[in-house]
Design a protein around this nucleic acid. Sequence first.
RNA 1: GGAGGGGUGGCCGAGAGGCUGAAGGCACCGGUUUGCUAAACCGGCAUACUGGGAAACUGGUAUCGAGGGUUCGAAUCCCUCCCUCUCCGCCA
Length: 424
Amino acid sequence: MHDARLIRERLDDLREAMRRRGVLGQLAPQLDRCEGLDRERRLLIQAVEERKAARNASSQDVARRKKAGEDAADLIAHGRAMGEEIARLDVELAAAEQALDAIVMQVPNVTLADVPEGDETHNVVVRTWGTPRSSDGVKPHWDIAAAQGLFDTERGAKVSGSGFVFFRGKGARLVRGLMNFFLDSHVDHHGYEEVWAPLLVNRASMTGTGQLPKMEDDAYRIGGDDLFLIPTAEVPVTNLYRDEILDAGVLPKAFCAYTPCFRREAGAAGKDTRGILRMHQFDKVELVRYCAPEDSEAQLQLLLGHAEAMLQQLEIPYRVTMLAAGDTGFSSAKTYDLEAWAPGVGAWLEVSSCSTFTDFQARRANIRYRPAKGEKPRFVHTLNGSGLAFPRTIACILENHQQPDGSVVVPQVLRRYVGTDRLA
RNA sequence: GGAGGGGUGGCCGAGAGGCUGAAGGCACCGGUUUGCUAAACCGGCAUACUGGGAAACUGGUAUCGAGGGUUCGAAUCCCUCCCUCUCCGCCA
């Protein structure tokens, strides 16, 4: 959500930001309406508040007269008339505010100055780590998994539907090992507080982080209770401090959480159907940070480094890309994707997406902090990134560390978690 | 799920139609006093929107779990919902 003042005073800046994202065409008509709606809204506020002030004063007079034992019938009648007018104006005001809100809630965040404009073809590779292994003679992860019985997508489809999977045996152990490796790393070495979060969240939480109202079709909803299965731990963990004012000294705050994630992938039918690259349910360890505005760029780089460390320790070559404005998510102001090399499928796989949301989510979720005693509260900046998503990481482990005999060498850091140095 | 008790400022807690943005206390901030600390005393201490002002500041409106209703006027009365506590039942 955007600052009302941004809409009012810097509408042209907002238009430019939407142009950079390539969405000005869709949003222009609505942005054009904002100025008028805001003016209307403020005129109505003035009108209604002026009348409320008069009514309140009149009510005081009624009290005074009654106390003095005088008649107040004329004031009461006048008050009733004012009340009717106020009710009418209130309805008009609510309509104007709703119309403005409906537009504002659909407008994505403004990307930062260093984010390239344009669509995903303008994404920039920032750096590459490791040497991508040749695809020659390397099997895709689904073949390795099938040979070793690590996961079973067919029975996942039978039991739940396509996009669901059973990890089995050593495969299941690998999932559990990754969970512990990631959490231990972030808690013990990167200073995160571990969080075990709700997997069902309410509408206010989904709206707070920006999944709603735009992307309701992508979420699984529990109808009777109006709860949603989380698409990422970002939702519960960022909403942890919704509607709160944090004390001066507590920032930055850093949380990591393991959760399953649930996504309908409504627009992705037919994409990545083989293997485990795109699932309706998958596991992820998520990193979430809250910080003061002036600190957010440094916090983003820190977060990104923590996610990168996971791939380095797993000995998986990867590259870091900065997403162009048009490829940057709705709530994000700047996003780095971590793409790990998967020689078997011959592609760079997105295993983490590290973003700063500036104050966009904080406004929606009303998360503030007080810079110093006696100062006015300000919105925090929120950031998050995967550290890391499991299925694609597993695909990369299997493909990068497979041996000519079909076995897979378990990366050193994972051996104590998986209980073996080789999957065969 | 059933039956009752509750949700008031950062916290505790009063208020039961008008004098209440809200007593009193704690915490916090500033000051006075005081070898230091402590204590005592004095003062300050919510948020949002909106008007005026270059600003310091200042006028107004709203907010006592949420939403609706009654009323000239609601923290206070009525309805719906949410949360919480106690007891009973059920359950990992």
